[in-house]
């Protein structure tokens, strides 16, 4: 259900940008979903459609695209992706990262040197990639 909170944030971002651009209509929004948070796309879409009722986004088409999560170790500089890590994560760990992606630093370690000091270089969070508007 965290998807509802994320949908709220995405809607607010789209509306703010559209207002700045003096948009009369927002026809399409492309939303990128970073895989680190393991967002349920169906719940997100349901939440989005429910929350945009009676708003200027009611008829806006949304496109969801995924981005694989990548990490870079700050100690040994190894780069790796989430797919190499998820098998080691239990349900509770995945859920914690789902709510707050940075909690990955508690549960994920560099596969080469074991360091918890790494950066999430791609695939964190959710963001609006672009919107199409009519003026």
């Amino acid at each position: 259900m965290h998807e509802w909170a994320l949908a709220e944030g995405v809607i607010s971002t789209i509306l703010t940008v559209a207002k700045k651009k003096d948009a009369k209509e927002i026809t399409e929004a492309e939303i990128k979903i970073g895989c680190l948070q393991q967002i349920d796309e169906n719940i997100f879409t349901t939440a989005f459609r429910e929350l945009v009722k009676h708003t200027p986004l009611e008829k806006t088409k949304i496109k969801l695209k995924n981005e694989e999560a990548y990490f870079k170790c700050r100690t040994c500089e190894l780069e790796w992706n989430l797919t190499n890590t998820t098998n080691a994560l239990g349900r509770e760990e995945s859920e914690a990262i789902h709510f707050i992606p940075e909690l990955a630093h508690t549960f994920i370690r560099c596969p080469r040197c074991g360091s918890p000091d790494f950066a999430v270089t791609r695939g964190r969070g959710i963001w609006v990639e672009h919107i199409k508007i009519l003026k």
């Binding site: 992606p101 940075e102 630093h105 508690t106 918890p116």
Partner: peptide, 18 residues
């Protein structure tokens, strides 16, 4: 609630994100 008594090593921007 999410990390229990495990360490949570974070750098500056990561703290902001949490």
């Amino acid at each position: 609630y999410y990390v229990g008594e495990k360490p949570l090593p974070l750098r500056g921007t990561e703290i902001s994100n949490v």
